[in-house]
């Protein structure tokens, strides 16, 4: 059988203005369906994908921000947000959507998916991956 690989998707573009954010999310969901060990990192303008309260009614585009809340169901439970990128935009963890997953090993306890990490911590996490995809 196939070997489980550690895949990380790195998101550094804002949503809606370009197609990168939605394309990445779709690829992540497909990858997750194949039972790989998938994590995501949000750096630079990618941070903006996670802002809460998105409402696209006036611009006639699909609001895909609710889809990030399904990541936990797809067993994508590691979502890293770079602290430096967050701070460069005057934002805090509180400005982002609250993403959670249920930990099967702990009687389905609800846990936070988002972890705010420094650049150097994120660099270390990237070094542990088998495959990295940039969007």
């Amino acid at each position: 059988m196939s070997v489980t690989k550690k895949l990380m998707y790195i998101n550094r573009r804002a949503p809606y203005g370009t197609i990168y954010a939605w394309e990445s999310l779709e690829v992540v969901l497909i990858g997750a369906a194949f039972e790989q060990d998938v994590s995501m990192a949000f750096i630079d303008d990618g941070i903006y994908q996670l802002l809460k309260g998105q409402d696209t009614n006036d611009i006639g585009m699909k609001n895909f921000s609710p889809t990030y809340s399904a990541l936990g169901d797809f067993e994508v439970t590691q979502i890293f947000v770079e602290k430096e990128s967050l701070e460069a935009r005057g934002l805090a963890l509180d400005d982002l959507m609250h993403l959670t997953y249920e930990d099967e090993d702990e009687d389905y306890a609800e846990k936070d998916s988002i972890k705010v990490v420094s650049s150097s911590e994120l660099a270390d996490i990237m070094e542990q991956q088998d495959v990295l995809y940039n969007f």
Binding site: L51, G53, D58, I59
Partner: peptide, 23 residues
């Protein structure tokens, strides 16, 4: 442009003072 702000979840109180929102 207000519609683009709303789409991205940006509230008006997050804007630089003096920037005008238009439709």
């Amino acid at each position: 442009l207000g519609g683009d702000l709303k789409a991205r979840g940006i509230e008006e109180n997050k804007l630089i003072d003096g920037v005008n929102v238009v439709d």
